[in-house]
C-alpha cells in the first residue's frame, strides 16, 4: 500500500468512527464507533512522518493521543458538562504539546486562561441554563445524513493536508534549524524574558489594541446582560402593577 492509500483509509476509518459516535447513536453503536475511531486515529498517527526513536518521542505521542482522544470525546458526549470537561483535558494535552515544542509561557497561559477561566465560565453558564444535563437536542443532533457529511468534510481536509505534508518532509529536513540556532533563538534558556522582550518591543501597538479589545468586550458583555435585565424588571413591574389593579 502506498503512503497516500494509508492516509486515505485511516482518515476514512476515523471519520466513520466519529460518525457512529455522534448523536443520535445509542450506547452500542457508540462503543463500535469508539473502536473504529481509535483504530483510524491510531493508524493515522502511525503514518505520521519521522517515526524513529520511541523512547524520546513518547512524550509527544502520549500528549497527542490524549489530546485527540479527549477532543473526540468532547465532540460526541451527550451531556454538555462532560463536553466541557473533556475539552479541558484536550486543552491540557495541547498545553503539553506547547511545552514539548519549547513554548513554556504559552503552555502555562493556555492552562490558566483556557482551562482555568474560559472552561469554568462555560460550566457556569451550562449549570445556569441546563441543570438537568442531557436534553433531547443533545441526543438527536441533526440526524444521520448531516453528521455523516459533517464528518466527511474535515476528513477530506485533514487527509489532503497530511498527503501534502508527507511530500514536503525532505524539504523541511533540509531547512530545519539546528540545536545551536534554536538555543540562541526560540529555545533560549531565558525563554520568557526573550518572549516578553519581543512582545513589548515589536508588538507594543498590538498589545495596547488587545487591551482595548478586552475592555470593549467587558463593557459589551455587561451591556448585553444589563439591557436584558432592565427589560425583564420593567415587565415584572408592569405585571405587579396589573396585579395590584386587579386586586383593587
Amino acid at each position: 500500500m502506498s503512503a497516500n492509500e494509508h492516509l486515505v483509509y485511516s482518515t476514512v476509518l476515523a471519520a466513520l468512527g466519529l460518525w457512529l459516535m455522534l448523536p443520535p447513536s445509542g450506547h452500542r453503536l457508540r462503543a463500535v464507533g469508539m473502536v473504529v475511531a481509535a483504530s483510524g486515529f491510531g493508524w493515522l498517527m502511525a503514518r505520521m512522518p519521522g517515526m524513529g526513536d520511541w523512547a524520546s518521542d513518547a512524550a509527544f505521542w502520549t500528549l497527542a493521543a490524549a489530546t485527540i482522544a479527549a477532543a473526540v470525546a468532547a465532540v460526541v458526549s451527550h451531556n454538555p458538562v462532560y463536553c466541557a470537561l473533556w475539552f479541558a483535558l484536550s486543552l491540557l494535552g495541547t498545553a503539553g504539546v506547547f511545552a514539548v515544542q519549547g513554548a513554556q509561557f504559552l503552555a502555562a497561559a493556555t492552562i490558566v486562561v483556557y482551562a482555568g477561566a474560559i472552561v469554568v465560565t462555560f460550566l457556569f453558564v451550562l449549570m445556569l441554563a441546563q441543570p438537568d444535563g442531557t436534553a433531547f437536542y443533545d441526543r438527536v443532533g441533526w440526524g444521520r445524513v448531516t453528521s455523516l457529511l459533517a464528518c466527511a468534510c474535515p476528513a477530506v481536509i485533514v487527509g489532503v493536508l497530511a498527503m501534502l505534508l508527507a511530500g514536503e518532509l525532505p524539504a523541511h529536513e533540509a531547512a530545519a534549524p539546528t540545536a545551536e540556532s534554536l538555543a540562541a533563538g526560540v529555545a533560549h534558556g531565558e525563554h520568557v524574558a526573550r518572549l516578553g522582550g519581543t512582545l513589548f518591543t515589536q508588538h507594543l501597538v498590538a498589545v495596547e489594541l488587545a487591551g482595548t479589545l478586552l475592555l470593549v468586550a467587558l463593557v459589551g458583555a455587561v451591556a448585553i446582560t444589563a439591557h436584558e435585565r432592565q427589560r425583564g424588571s420593567r415587565s415584572d413591574r408592569s405585571g405587579a402593577a396589573m396585579g395590584k389593579g386587579a386586586t383593587r
Binding site: 455522534l22 486515529f41 477532543a71 465532540v75 484536550s90 443532533g141 474535515p154
Partner: peptide, 18 residues
Amino acid sequence: AILFGIGMVGMIARRNMI
C-alpha cells in the same frame, strides 16, 4: 489539523449552542 477537523465536526454536527 486533526484538532481543527474534530472541532469542525462538532461545530457542524451538534445543536447545543455552548
